[in-house]
Structures are given as C-alpha cells and as structure tokens.
Design a binder for these strands. Sequence first.
DNA 1: CACGACGTGTCAAGCAAGACGACAGAATGG
DNA 2: CCATTCTGTCGTCTTGCTTGACACGTCGTG
Lengths: 213, 213
Amino acid sequence: MTVAAPATMRSTEPRTPYPVAARELLRDTLLDAAGAELYERRWSDITMADIARSAGVSRQTLYNEFGSREEFAQVLVMRESDRFLDAVEHAVRAHLNEPAEALAAAFGIFLTAAAENPLVRTIVGGDGAEQLLALFTTQGKPLVDRATERVTDVLLSGWPLVARQDAELLSECLVRLAISYAALPQGPASMTASSLARLLGPYIERVVKESSA
Amino acid sequence: MTVAAPATMRSTEPRTPYPVAARELLRDTLLDAAGAELYERRWSDITMADIARSAGVSRQTLYNEFGSREEFAQVLVMRESDRFLDAVEHAVRAHLNEPAEALAAAFGIFLTAAAENPLVRTIVGGDGAEQLLALFTTQGKPLVDRATERVTDVLLSGWPLVARQDAELLSECLVRLAISYAALPQGPASMTASSLARLLGPYIERVVKESSA
DNA sequence: CACGACGTGTCAAGCAAGACGACAGAATGG
DNA sequence: CCATTCTGTCGTCTTGCTTGACACGTCGTG
C-alpha cells in the first residue's frame, strides 16, 4: 500500500516544472483528441478544427504547436509507434537468455497489439487514411529510422557483445517486417511471430554466439 | 497487454479539455512542490517563494491560485487526506461481508500509511509544523466534515440499508479517532485497529442487523 | 530600543500564449 | 460552373503569468 508516499512526493526525483509540463499536456491533449476522433471517423473526415475543438483549444494553437496537418499526423503516428516500442522492449527484456524466444515474443506482442490498436485499424482497414498510411511506408523514413534506433538500443543493451552493425541490420529488417505484417497481416499473430523467429533465429544465434566467443 | 489502446484513447470517456487540465496541472505542480520541500525542511522554514520556484512558477501565480499561505496549507492537507480516504475506501470495499473486519482493515491501512507518510511525519514528529497541525485539530472542521462525508458515503454505498444518521455518527467518530491516533500513535497499527474494531464492532453489528431486519 | 533582514500579501506594468475573426487559395461536390 | 469547405496565415484582443516594487508585520541583533 504505497498510497502514503505518492510518486510525486519523492524528493530525489526531478519534478517537472509547470511550464514544461503544461506544454507537454497541451500536445498530449491534442494528440489524444485526434486519437479519440479516429475511433469514430476516418482521418480524411477529421478536420483540424475538429481536433482543436475536441481538445478544448483554438485551431490556431493547434497550428502553432504542430505547424500543419502533415506534421501533426507525423507526430501522432510517431507517438503511437513509441508506445508499441515500449511494449516490444518489455517483451525482449523478459527473454534475455533465449534470443529467438525474445524475437517471437516481441513480434507476438507487437502484432497482437497492432491488430487491436484503433489507429492501426483505421489505417489498415479503411479508406480515407491514405495520408496516414504513407507515413508508415513511402514517407516512413523518420519512423523507420527512429524505430530501428530504439530496437538497436534494446538489442545492444540486452546483448552488449553483439556488433553494432549486426544489430542495426537486424533491427531495420525487423522494423520493416513489423510494419509490413501490421499493414497486411498473414494468419494469426503467434503464427507469424514463430515463423519469423524460425527465419531469423539462425542469424541471431550466429551473431550472439560470435560475440560471446 | 493493453498498450495497444491506451486509456487516453477510449472515445466514450469524457476527455478533459486542455484549459481545465492545465489548471489542474498547475495546482498539482504547486502542491507537489510543497510536498517535496516538506521532505527536507519543516513547514515553517518553507517560504511561498520556495514553493513557487520549486514549481517553476512565479510567486504571484501561487498567490493567484491559492490566495494565501493558510489556504494553500489547507488545500495541501485536504488533498493528502483525500489520498488516505481513497485507500480506506478501497479497504472497506474489500470486506463488505464482515463489517467489523472492514473497520479493522481500514484502520490498519490508514494508520500504517499515516506512519509512513512524509507529510504526516513532519506534522506529528517535529517542530515548525504547528500551523499545519492546527488544520487537523482546532481548524480541522473542513477536513473532518469532508472526511466524514466521504466515509459516510462509503458506508451507505456498502450497506445501503443502514440509517443515514447511524452512518454519520459512526463516520464522524471514526474520522476523529483516526486523526487522533495518527497524531499520537499508541502501539502498532494493527493492534490499534483491532482494538477499535472490538470497541465499535457491537455498534456496527447492531446497525447493520437492524437495517437488514 | 532601534535597526536591518526577511517573509507575507498586494499592486501595476509588461509580456507571451491562446482566442477570435477574417481571408486567400485549393480541393470537393452538386 | 458555382457553392461549399478545409487548410494555412495574419492581425487584434483577451487572458494569465512574470517582474519589480512596496507596505506591513515579525524576528534576531547590536
């Protein structure tokens, strides 16, 4: 029962000053508003005015904060992908001893989550989300780069002896495969996950083994 | 694994508009700042300027938001007590079938949490917190009233047939006893809790029985 | 006792962020 | 082809936070 000393009261941790927190809150509120709208309408039917109103803010502030509809969508997608990466990271850390298992678990988690995620569903499933879809594919460089970087970091922190180049190659391919299967699923998530584990298992075993030799 | 659909994305729930959330955030940040300061210094050594600075805000906004040092302290204490009441509420709901047990559990939780809570510790333990102490006792009407009301609500929602008057009497006495034992502990928390359960058990059994008759 | 130092509470002026209204340009649909 | 609607931008107005100043009361010190 830790109600007695809430996290906000630990003196050692650096509490975020209000101005910073307020800005963060503003951006989050706007992104959340968009997310909520996406639950009901498709992206092409949601106007900037809708998002601003839904966040309780003027359209101008939305533009001040994000520049344009494009950029806003970019950030929205980015934030969502970060959440996926959190889950993936967690899954990998739970299987540090069996690399292939880690891969299967991470992919399983990812694909399951993706299948349920409303943002992903609206993109994959329906019309009117072409703009968003592009952010994962043709315009997806920022996303792929960032995701690759994060996955690389996870790999290197979990298996420090693996060569960075190997980790980067693996990460990028994983990210691309993840996006591909999220966009166009093939059979159940666990099946896909284990298939990929079989496919990439040998490579993983190899680089891990080499590193520990 | 619910990472896929974060709570902030449920369309049905009423998302809080930014202006409201920002205000809330401002107040919380200030209160948290005070809490953090209380970890290190005593209340009488903490200036309004300290709190404002620690929250990353000007002294004036602190005054705009809370009026005076007194009022600020009042709110601070109030918020903390609300957290305790959350814990108590939770404990009670876990023992809806055995009223006396519920009482013992709630008191046990409460006293244990109070003993560990930094705010309470600074008030009970040391000098320089007389102003805060007063808010629990001589100036404690708002706190006692509010706490009594909340406890009454919990009781009535758990045992709907109990007469409101009985619940109110019991609640007020419980609140007052809780404050008293928090301010001046007597032996271990569990001991005190069971003693009180023995003391008030008969009354509780009585009103519950009467109500179900 | 008088004095300076310090904290509270208040005020006015300055400034930055958001709200509001309006507009050009592009896309959409009747 | 015209009307509508949305995007993106601009200028003005309002609001809220900041800054600096000051009166007042309290405390510790010479």
